[in-house]
Design a protein around this nucleic acid. Structure first.
Length: 302
DNA sequence: ACCTAAATAT
DNA sequence: TATATTTAGG
């Protein structure tokens, strides 16, 4: 059955990355660099001691290398002269926050996963930088970041298709391997995230030969989009018993409005769940029970 | 105005 | 080197 296949791909990631420790800090560290800089904030978590000008925070942004992974994501700054002088703004009338260059964004597997999830739910068709960015609701993430990453991601998928088509029934895993060979650069990062099945279907409206594709009549436009899409208890990408892989229910504008509706969890409290609900595997039981990985990042640390 | 692609910088 | 950022074009 199909389900078996699907089960394999997502079962796998589960073991791969989901480190509870890693998932947590995602948004935490994503505080706007500018803000952080302007306020001289280094680490919300680490507040033990802070001298006026202490050595730079842990710049190590290794993502999956360490176990106790620390707040990955944005790399503080390449050493440089921190922001000592930034303490004073306004002085002569300069606008540091605006002129400051954003630190290199580190696309951690988790972050990338979020990206992929967003794209998956949006559908390749509507998967545009802006929408993705909005959907991700990651503070500090800019359209540029997403656009750039999206570009790479597309190439990655393309690579996969090209190689997988010749191979045959190799499967995604094999394709990934092949892609890795072709482009080792992208492989690592993207390999961390499962490639939604329908992602590999550039132009195939319906593929499932057996699935009768029951009439899926969602004529619900308007603001139900997110709710419907997100609250879907089962059948995300892949199974999609609802028939189509691409969900037309989320049109660009709809998505945008939706996102806007949720509003960026500005400072303060964010009980609002920007996005993400059950993208994760339905609590897959791991035989032997090892680690359960719920990828619901708590966006609201505060 | 936005998205896509290539080039550049780190 | 690999990755992200930036610039240019459609």
């Amino acid at each position: 059955m199909r389900e078996s296949e699907e089960g394999s791909w997502f079962s796998k990631w589960e073991e791969e990355l989901p480190s509870p420790d890693e998932l947590m800090p995602l948004t935490q560290t994503l505080i706007t660099p500018d803000l952080a800089a302007a306020f001289d904030i280094r680490s919300p978590l680490n507040n033990t001691d802070h001298s006026s000008d202490s050595p730079p925070p842990p710049p190590s942004v290794n993502s999956i290398a360490s176990n106790h992974l620390q707040p990955p994501v944005l790399s503080p700054h390449p050493a440089s002269a921190e922001f000592s002088e930034l303490g004073e703004l306004g002085g002569t009338g300069d606008e540091p926050a605006r002129t400051l260059k954003r630190p290199r964004l580190v696309w951690t597997p988790q972050l990338h996963k979020r990206f992929v999830d967003a794209v998956a739910h949006l559908g390749i068709k509507n998967a545009v930088p802006k929408t993705i960015m909005q959907l991700m609701s990651v503070d500090g993430l800019t359209r540029e970041n997403v656009a750039s990453h999206l570009q790479k991601y597309r190439l990655y998928l393309k690579r996969m298709q090209g190689l997988s088509s010749g191979g045959g029934a190799a499967g995604v895993g094999a394709a990934a391997a092949a892609a890795a060979v072709a482009d080792p650069a992208t492989e690592h990062l993207f390999a961390s995230s499962p490639v939604p099945p329908h992602f590999l279907r550039p132009n195939s409206d319906h593929f499932l030969p057996f699935v009768s594709v029951p009439t899926h009549h969602h004529h619900h436009q308007q603001q139900m989009a997110t709710a419907a899409a997100y609250q879907r208890p089962v059948g995300h990408f892949g199974s999609a018993p609802n028939g189509q892989f691409e969900h037309p229910f989320l049109s660009r504008q709809a998505a945008q409005q939706q996102v806007q509706r949720m509003g960026p969890q500005l400072h303060g409290h964010g009980p609002l769940q920007p996005y993400m609900e059950n993208l994760e595997p339905p609590a897959n039981n791991v035989n032997g029970g090892g680690r359960k990985v719920l990828t619901l990042f708590p966006t609201g640390g505060d």
